[in-house]
Design a protein around this nucleic acid. Structure first.
Length: 549
DNA sequence: ACCCAGTCT
DNA sequence: CGACCAGACTGGGTC
């Protein structure tokens, strides 16, 4: 018997819990009002007794107190995330309204100042929660195949939301003193939060003099470009990759300045003050906004943590990181969704690119990688070059699959991930542009927009399915860790698209490593069945994130 | 508000 | 011949 628990705001208190049998819909106990103090223990009790799927509008505000009290929820259904998925999915049997994920969370406390502005409904009353859930169930396709896929996607997305909350609470172990020392060494003493740090200011001075432009602000692309022209450098922009081509000592100084300036502005003292507390970095993960289903992060730029700063991501004595990433995840996903047997065969090796080398289809591993990425991103260079030709010959089924996705998008159609996440439809402006053939320029713009949409849909089918695999992988890992009884000591602390970082006691790391590999195998089977292609993961154990590669 | 540049996958 | 080429967030400059 499976149970389902609706979690709603109690207008007269804190929370209402409505526990039912999933299939009959009958109440398993009277609807229970719970105050904030008792909330974690009541939820923990129900979790132990019934292990229900917890239905809530959002993880906010419920998960914070639960996690603080060490309560683990195995299963969830996060309505706002499910709503977005069902709204977009071409598999849905009924059209559902979108949910505005940006909408600020309303306080449950009635506004104490002015009753006039107290909303009559928070959108989180028990009846609203149940109604929303039922309409979502109705939108699941009758056909069990697609129905199970969408249901799996909703469950995976929901457990992802729980994991995001757990990671936010746990934080990423950060060597703050080491970080400060690194800043002092490269930027000089901290004198003020305004203006440049001493060593950076000196470098700016030195550049201005060397380029013969007194007062130059090297942080201004316009000023810097003019100064470089004046000094005789023929560049069209001040992008680092363009400047690097010049190979000139003065340019090297410019590049050095840019590097320091970036460190100071994005990971300087102010960043540490704001984001690192008690030796841990607490970013905020944002789900449901990226169309492909990948996560975003707001605050601290968690998903763009530069490699150059990862040396200060360290565990305390006694703990270690276990860092796992899906090896060549996207090509393997492409092999699975296109059912390209040859590409799946290449994927039997831990290093998929090695197969291309062994078959003498490419001159180097890097060529293999670039060619494959180009196929997935939609670059013309990949398919038209020598490597692209080799890939097309070797993996015609996979190539046809991405070409088909591109063609659909280019014509204004939509595509979906393996589990049924739909891409956004072509917008009004795009459609209007396709009809405007008044002159050559607008036609060119329309063609360019059409190709851009083709590249987007081509990439979408792979990226969105890769995101699903990663969610399911994380979900299995979380489950296995809980089953092993390690939840309290072994925590997921970071996630970047296809890479997961755990922190655990050093002695547990080898066992955790096996659990992560097993979870990856399960993820493949959960999505693609017993005949799933291989999804090898590389796992490194280190107390320093920079060294875990 | 938008551009530019840099960071990650 | 050369431009074509995925998804994000952040900070500083510019208008």
């Amino acid at each position: 018997m499976s149970a389902i628990a609706f979690l709603a705001a109690d207008p007269d208190g804190y929370a209402l819990i409505d526990l039912r049998d999933q299939h009959s819909g009958s109440l398993l106990q009277p609807v229970t009002p719970v105050d904030a103090e008792a909330f974690p223990s009541v939820v923990a009790g129900l979790e132990t007794q019934h292990s229900p799927r917890w239905v809530m509008l959002r993880t906010d505000p419920w998960m914070r107190p639960l996690i603080a009290a060490g309560v683990h929820l195995a299963k969830a259904h996060i309505l706002c995330l499910a709503q977005r998925i069902l709204h977009r999915s071409p598999l849905a049997s009924k059209e559902l309204e979108d949910f505005d994920l940006e909408r600020p969370v309303q306080s449950f406390e009635p506004a104490n100042q002015d009753a006039l502005f107290a909303a009559p409904s928070s959108g989180e009353s028990l009846s609203e929660i149940i109604a929303m859930y039922l309409s979502q169930r109705e939108a699941l396709p009758q056909d069990p195949g697609p129905g199970q896929r969408l249901e799996l996607l909703i469950h995976a997305e929901s457990v992802g939301a729980l994991i995001a909350c757990e990671m936010e609470a746990a934080g990423l172990s950060w060597d703050e003193a080491g970080h400060r020392a690194l800043l002092r060494e490269q930027l000089g003493p901290r004198v003020s939060d305004y203006g440049r740090p001493p060593k950076l200011a000196a470098k700016a001075q030195q550049l201005a003099t060397a380029l013969g432009t007194p007062g130059l602000n090297p942080d201004s692309p316009q000023e810097l470009l003019r100064a470089l022209h004046k000094a005789g450098f023929a560049v069209s922009s001040v992008r680092a990759w363009e400047l690097e081509q010049l190979n000139h000592p003065l340019i090297a100084e410019v590049l050095e300045y840019k590097k320091l300036s970036r460190l100071a502005s994005t990971h300087g003292d102010a960043w540490l003050d704001q984001w690192v507390k008690n030796g841990r970095f607490h970013p905020h993960y944002v789900l449901g906004t990226v169309t492909s289903g990948r996560w975003a992060a707001s605050g601290g730029g968690a998903l763009q943590l530069p490699h150059s700063i990862r040396q200060v991501v360290r565990t305390r004595e006694g703990s270690t990181f276990v860092v796992a990433d899906g090896r060549q995840l996207e090509p393997r996903i492409l092999a699975a969704i296109s059912n390209d047997q040859q590409l799946q065969k290449a994927g039997q090796q831990d290093d998929l690119y090695q197969w291309l080398l062994d078959a003498k289809l490419v001159a180097s591993r890097n060529d293999a990688k670039l060619g494959m990425l180009s196929v997935i991103y939609g670059g013309g260079g990949g398919a038209s070059g020598a490597v692209g030709a080799a890939l097309t010959r070797s993996f015609p089924t996979a190539m046809r699959f991405v070409e088909q996705a591109a063609a659909t998008g280019q014509q204004g159609g939509g595509v979906r991930s393996f589990l049924g996440r739909g891409c956004p439809p072509a917008d009004e402006q795009w459609l209007a542009g396709q009809k405007a053939t008044s002159d050559e320029a607008s036609q060119r713009a329309a063609d360019s927009a059409a190709r851009a949409r083709g590249r987007f849909t081509r990439n979408f089918v792979v990226q969105a399915t890769a995101a699903e695999w990663a969610l399911v992988w994380m979900g299995h890992a979380r489950h296995l860790i809980h089953q092993a009884g390690w939840s309290r000591i072994c925590k997921q602390v970071f996630f970047v698209h296809d890479e997961i970082v755990f922190e655990c006691p050093t002695g547990l790391a080898p066992q955790l490593q096996e659990v992560i590999r097993h979870a990856a195998m399960l993820a493949g089977r959960t999505l693609f069945g017993q005949a799933s292609p291989r999804f090898p993961v590389s796992v490194a154990i280190s107390d320093n994130y920079a060294e875990a590669k």
